[in-house]
Design a protein around this nucleic acid. Structure first.
Length: 215
DNA sequence: CACCAGGCAAGTA
DNA sequence: TACTTGCATGGT
């Protein structure tokens, strides 16, 4: 029985070998990453891209301009991402927090110490653990492991965790047994999502011929 | 047609 | 505390 650390590394190697580099959110601004982190909630990236393209077309991908925009109008631009009324409010909630805490200086906001920033994010209505951690990792560039439903489903189906393992516990499994590395965590999360999408759907409980088959 | 996607909050008991 | 439900569009 190998240690957890070796198992997690072996899984990473299998997935990275199968899917290759993921490079999520490359070359985008931290603000775009934050917007994307909210828009992606419970939908797919295809829909989010359309919503972001709409915002880009009218040059609304900035904190000041998005904050000043009417909620109803914002909702129309992001409609393709689903839950448009809800997400319009959530985007405004996040912008307001940055305005309060950092007077609209996003670099200052994201430059806060990790724990401080995490609490700020979790205090925004509409930002839960996963969205907060995605922003911490991909926008603020802290080595934080992002856990999502696929992470839970995959590890649980391969008997690495209990079915009733919670978010924080699952996150600790990774952070306690891997070195805190920005690139590793970013790729690992992305790879788990790819694996989940292709091989570990809810309606397919078998998990056969996935890159982790037999693990 | 049914299913579900990179969640979260509020309500219920 | 432990479920359940609303939120909504678009792809397979």
């Amino acid at each position: 029985m190998a240690g957890i650390s070796e198992q997690l590394r072996a899984i990473y190697r299998l997935l990275a070998g199968h899917f290759g580099p993921q490079h999520w959110w490359p070359g985008e601004t931290p603000f775009e990453v934050m917007v994307g982190a909210i828009l992606i909630q419970n939908t797919n990236w295809n829909n989010v891209e359309k919503a972001i393209a709409n915002l880009r077309d009218v040059d609304l991908l900035s904190l000041e301009r998005l904050s000043a925009l009417d909620s109803g109008l914002l909702a129309e631009y992001i409609r393709p991402a689903g839950y448009h009324n809800l997400k319009a409010a959530r985007l405004h909630n996040l912008c307001s927090r940055v305005l309060e805490v950092s007077q609209g200086d996003l670099d200052h906001f994201l430059g806060q110490p990790l724990e401080e920033l995490r609490l700020q994010l979790l205090g925004v209505k509409g930002i839960g653990p996963e969205t907060a951690d995605a922003i911490l990792l991909y926008a603020a560039r802290y080595p934080v492991f992002v856990v999502d439903t696929y992470t839970h489903r995959i590890l649980s189906r391969h008997q690495l965790i209990d079915e009733e393992c919670g978010y924080h516990q699952l996150q600790e499994l990774f952070t306690d047994h891997l070195e805190a590395d920005l690139h590793l965590f970013g790729e690992y999360h992305a790879l788990l999502v790819q694996t989940g999408k292709h091989y570990c759907r809810k309606s397919r409980p078998d998990c056969s011929h996935c890159p982790l088959d037999g693990f």
